[in-house]
């Protein structure tokens, strides 16, 4: 189903897409968001706007999306199931569309335990699978989640979802990805890839089922600033795998930040050249947005395609 999304046009044209991520701030100024958007503008096709990531209160993803859009970059509004019931979700989706947002990424969301409001109540009225399904139905069948008709101006989003090849049970990860595609996901961004071997096995299973022909998969990559950051993720973040070799390589580097960028570029080149079925990369430079243009350029992904 066609939408007005620029990202969709690029992916449907068969071009290798590049998306990045902008994390809204813990305050009410958009200055930083706008700075990052302007800096990335010519280097990415769209940027995710995270939705209170790690359950920390931040400027809203939809509001941030408007700022990003006004800087000439297409936003992908992230929407988690943690903080809104189905009423609030639909209301925000209608609002987001009215403000020009054309891409939505549906996620469960990190548990509030990890954030700055661990005593809050989570919602999870619906899960990410259901959000994908109902977003598609809103667009294609003009129905609210309840089944009531949307008489006019239904939101027509390009629907994204996430997949984590590093979570368990591994054998079911590809099946669950397929379930998301059947529910209506049109593009997939993966969790940060550090364990390339595991990602290759995942993609092999994806290809066996022919899923890569039904959805656009963007491989998630993250440049690391230090071996301590890598070690922290290795030990403390559930659903991520960081091989020891990567930690060691950063540890032994003279300039670990440079090394982190080099590793990221190597990964992108490797994925693009060697792993069939991957249609783009999603660069998650967490709290390090400045480095995105260099990574994109040196990975041979610059300039970005122009879309009418």
């Amino acid at each position: 189903m066609k939408t007005e999304s620029k990202l969709q046009k690029i992916l449907d044209n068969g071009q290798f897409a590049v998306t990045a991520e902008i994390g809204p701030p813990k305050h009410s100024s958009a200055e930083g968001i706008r700075h990052h958007a302007e800096m990335m503008r010519d280097y990415v096709d769209a940027t995710n706007i995270t939705d209170n990531q790690t359950a920390i209160v931040r400027l809203s993803s939809i509001a941030a999306g408007v700022h990003v859009q006004s800087c000439g970059i297409e936003p992908i509004v992230q929407m988690t199931c943690r903080d809104r019931n189905r009423i609030a979700m639909q209301s925000d989706l209608l609002g987001a569309y009215s403000l020009g947002m054309r891409n939505v990424l549906c996620l469960s969301g990190d548990h509030q335990k990890f954030g700055n409001h661990p005593t809050s109540k989570n919602v999870y009225d619906i899960d990410s699978m259901q959000l994908i399904y109902y977003l598609r139905r809103m667009r294609d069948e003009k129905l609210f989640f309840s089944g009531e008709e949307i008489k006019e101006h239904e939101p027509r989003f390009f629907i994204g979802a996430v997949a984590n090849p590093f979570a368990d049970p591994f054998e079911f990860r590809v099946a669950r990805l397929e379930k998301k595609v059947e529910a209506g996901a049109q593009f997939i961004q993966t969790q940060c890839i550090f364990d390339m071997e595991r990602f290759e096995r995942f993609m092999e299973m994806v290809r066996e089922r022919g899923i890569h022909e039904r959805v656009h998969i963007l491989a998630g990559v993250t440049p690391m600033k230090s071996w301590r950051a890598a070690k922290y993720i290795q030990n403390n973040v559930s659903g991520m795998i960081v091989p020891d070799e990567l930690v060691e390589r950063l540890k032994n580097a003279e300039d670990p930040k440079r090394e982190g960028v080099e590793i990221c570029i190597e990964q992108i080149k490797y994925i693009k050249e060697n792993i069939k079925g991957v249609h783009g990369v999603h660069v998650m430079a967490i709290a390090w947005e400045e480095v995105v243009p260099e990574i994109v350029e040196r990975s041979g992904l610059y300039p970005r395609p122009k879309v009418d």
């Binding site: 548990h111 899960d127 990410s128 259901q130 669950r176 559930s238 659903g239």
Partner: peptide, 28 residues
């Protein structure tokens, strides 16, 4: 911990929930 009906979410690893290594992932 997220009452997910189409799980498991991406936080499930080694049979445990993302909230704690002491909590079994129901979807596993």
């Amino acid at each position: 911990s997220k009452s997910i009906l189409n799980g498991p979410c991406g936080g499930s690893q080694y049979g445990k929930c993302e909230i704690s290594k002491d909590v079994d992932c129901a979807w596993q």
